[in-house]
Amino acid sequence: MNHNVNEEKTENPTEHRIKKFRKTGKTKYSRELNSLLILFFGFITLWWYKDSIVSRLIKIMSDSFSFDKKIILNNDYNLLNFLTYLKEISLIFFPFFVVLLCVVLIPPIFLSGIAMNFQSLHCSFNKLNPLNGIKRIFAIETIIEFIKITIKLVLIMSLSYWYLYTSVSEMSVLIYENFSSSLLHGFKILFNCCTVIIFGLIPVALFDVCLQQFKYYKQLKMTHQEVKDEFREKEGNPSIKVRIRQEMKASVRRRMMLDIPKADVVIVNPIHYSVALKYDEQNMHAPKVIAKGVGAVALKIQMLAMQNKISIISAPSLARSLYRYSDIGQYIPGPLYKAVAEVLAWVWKVKKWKKEGGVFPEKPKNILVPSELNFKGDR
Rank of each mutant, 00 (worst) to 15 (best):
P108F: 04
R56F: 01
N129L: 08
H224I: 13
K87Q: 03
M257I: 01
V265Q: 00
V154G: 10
S239Y: 13
L80Q: 10
F214M: 14
R253L: 13
S251Y: 11
V173N: 12
G42V: 09
F93N: 00
E177M: 08
S181A: 15
L368N: 15
L184E: 06
K363M: 02
V350Q: 01
T45Y: 05
Y323M: 06
R22C: 04
K354Q: 15
F40N: 04
V340N: 04
Y216S: 09
R379M: 12
A341S: 13
L111N: 12
I134P: 05
E32P: 05
L373Y: 15
L91H: 03
K338G: 11
E247P: 04
I44E: 07
L105Y: 14
H185Y: 09
R243M: 04
S158V: 04
A339Q: 06
Y176H: 12
G377R: 09
D264A: 02
T45I: 06
N192K: 11
E8C: 08
E11P: 04
K28A: 13
K351N: 14
P107C: 12
V168Y: 08
D280W: 09
L183C: 07
V227W: 02
L111Y: 11
I89Y: 00
D208G: 05
L220I: 07
M61T: 08
K26L: 05
N34K: 03
I106A: 07
K292M: 03
